[in-house]
């Protein structure tokens, strides 16, 4: 049995994948990673089973693209004129420090907290997208959340937030 028409798959998941990538790699590279994600999905699409969890599947691909992107960036010699762009990236809204803090997390922790707290994925799915156990996914999200709080409260004391879990 075949999956739904790719046109519908793209329309259904484009916003979430874009949001994930925007936060994970920033506005400059989100577009490239988005193209790579959906083209990889399109290539593999005829082999996808109808009853697959397509949302978790496409986020798995996107997570892999983020990790690839980080590795490539780490290998690339950094051109001096690009440094300001990375250290102070434009942000889609007026809170650049949040986006910058997210992007400074290690890729797996970054993917875990975005999928958990922005895309509301259950840990079972996050474990799949990261290719690890549910406990490891939880640990990554926990670690990411802790670091994020530290970074966003300059005095180092945890911010009081309602409904944190």
């Amino acid at each position: 049995m075949s999956p739904p028409p790719f046109a519908r798959f793209l329309e259904e998941h484009r916003a979430q994948v874009y949001r994930f990538l925007l936060a994970a790699v920033g506005p400059h590279d989100a577009d490239d990673c988005f193209q790579e994600t959906f083209l990889a999905a399109l290539r593999a699409y005829p082999r996808v089973r109808e009853d697959s969890n397509l949302r978790a599947w496409v986020l798995t691909i996107a997570t892999r693209k983020v990790i690839d992107h980080e590795r490539a960036r780490a290998r690339r010699p950094v051109p001096v004129e690009r440094l300001p762009h990375w250290s102070a990236p434009e942000s889609p809204d007026g809170e650049p420090e949040v986006w910058r803090a997210v992007r400074s997390l290690p890729p797996r922790q970054r993917a875990a907290i975005l999928q958990r707290y922005v895309l509301d994925l259950p840990y079972a799915d996050i474990a799949r997208t990261l290719g690890c156990s549910q406990e490891a996914a939880r640990a990554s999200a926990y670690e990411g959340r802790r670091k994020l709080r530290e970074m966003l409260s300059p005095d180092g004391s945890p911010k009081a937030t309602g409904g944190a879990r």
């Binding site: 484009r14 916003a15 989100a30 889609p92 949040v98 997210v102 707290y117 922005v118 959340r145 994020l148």
Partner: peptide
């Protein structure tokens, strides 16, 4: 939910993601 990530949750990505999809 963690409040720190609200800006990421709120960002309007409809137009940008539509252009990227095109």
């Amino acid at each position: 939910m963690i409040q720190e990530l609200d800006p990421v949750r709120r960002a309007d990505v409809d137009r940008a993601s539509r252009l990227a999809a095109e």
